[in-house]
């Protein structure tokens, strides 16, 4: 039996990047301390702040909501679920989100594509315009979260992005040579949107999942049927292959990026204008949401 390096109890997880095996209780303590430290050192929240939490019912956002609910900062948490309208997938996530909110005594705000945009994602992907599901979903989910956050009078929105998401985003932008997007990744909210914060940014995806499983949080582990962004999946698999042979490589990518960020400050950025249709900030004459909405049939 593999033992916890600190207390000798049965180990549930091996942090290979630092050679430490942890038992259940010390794994909880480690994850919770890691999030508290991120919140404190990065000054993610003010005491008593009114914060939105993007909640899908998946492991990342569910673990995030649970962890934030345990912080003794008097945060006013407002979980927001976006119902994109994906038959056979989203209902399970929403069910898990409702169960978690009920456990934590929080009110879940649900915003649906059908109500706000007139169409479900399942309908959008069938339009002849030919965009992938992730394109519609990313743009409209961001918009609806922002709208809901403003309606609820929130100061920022926390998302469940983990270390793997961040390392993938850095590598995707870097390998595409998209330096402006690489820069924006580290300066959330600079396009005039409600600021986004990522308290799990330094927690590997596997650790977030194990935390949610060990805490027995109601989560859906199903994979979205539209998750077919081949480029991202390629980067994900590449990074997991690297991580297997070189534990800690994802941390190195994120830390290297954070060291690079101040040096990108002088990189020329596209000026932010207002969307000609809705007034939201965008570098283009029309924001992406209005561009996509214009392409949708009445």
């Amino acid at each position: 039996m593999a033992e916890c390096d600190r207390c000798g109890a049965r180990a549930v997880y091996n942090r290979r990047y630092c050679g430490q095996r942890l038992c259940r209780d010390l794994f909880f303590a480690y994850i919770e301390a890691r999030v508290r430290r991120a919140v404190k050192t990065q000054k993610i929240f003010e005491r008593g702040e009114k914060v939105g939490v993007a909640l899908s019912g998946g492991k990342d956002s569910s673990a995030l909501l649970y962890l934030l609910s345990q912080l003794s900062m008097g945060l006013e948490l407002h979980p927001i679920a976006i119902d994109e309208g994906i038959a056979g997938y989203r209902p399970h996530g929403l069910e898990a989100a409702r169960a978690l909110c009920s456990q934590l005594g929080l009110e879940l705000h649900t915003v649906s594509f059908r109500e706000r945009l007139g169409h479900t994602l399942d309908e959008m992907v069938k339009w002849e315009r030919g965009y992938a599901g992730c394109t519609y979903c990313g743009v409209f989910r961001r918009r609806l979260l922002n709208d809901a956050g403003r309606e609820l009078g929130l100061s920022k929105i926390a998302t469940g992005h983990n270390l793997d998401d961040e390392a993938q985003a850095v590598m995707m932008n870097y390998t595409r040579g998209d330096i402006e997007r690489l820069l924006r990744l580290g300066t959330p909210g600079d396009l005039g949107l409600l600021p986004r914060v990522k308290p799990l940014q330094e927690v590997p995806e596997k650790e977030v999942a194990i935390y949610a499983l060990l805490r027995e949080l109601p989560v859906s582990l199903e994979e979205c049927p539209y998750a077919r962004d081949a480029f991202r999946l390629g980067i994900r698999d590449f990074l997991n292959g690297l991580e297997l042979a070189n534990p800690g490589i994802k941390y190195s990518i994120l830390r290297g990026y954070k060291r690079l960020l101040p040096h990108l400050a002088t990189y020329p950025r596209t000026a932010v204008k207002r969307c000609g249709a809705c007034g939201e900030p965008t570098p283009n004459p029309l924001c992406k949401a209005c561009e996509l909405l214009g392409a949708l049939p009445e």
Partner: peptide
């Protein structure tokens, strides 16, 4: 299967992959 992409449960309890 890349161990970085999975959690493992042995006889109903999560464990390390060294077991």
């Amino acid at each position: 299967i890349n161990r970085e992409t999975v959690a493992v449960s042995l006889n109903g309890a999560l464990c390390t992959e060294e077991e």
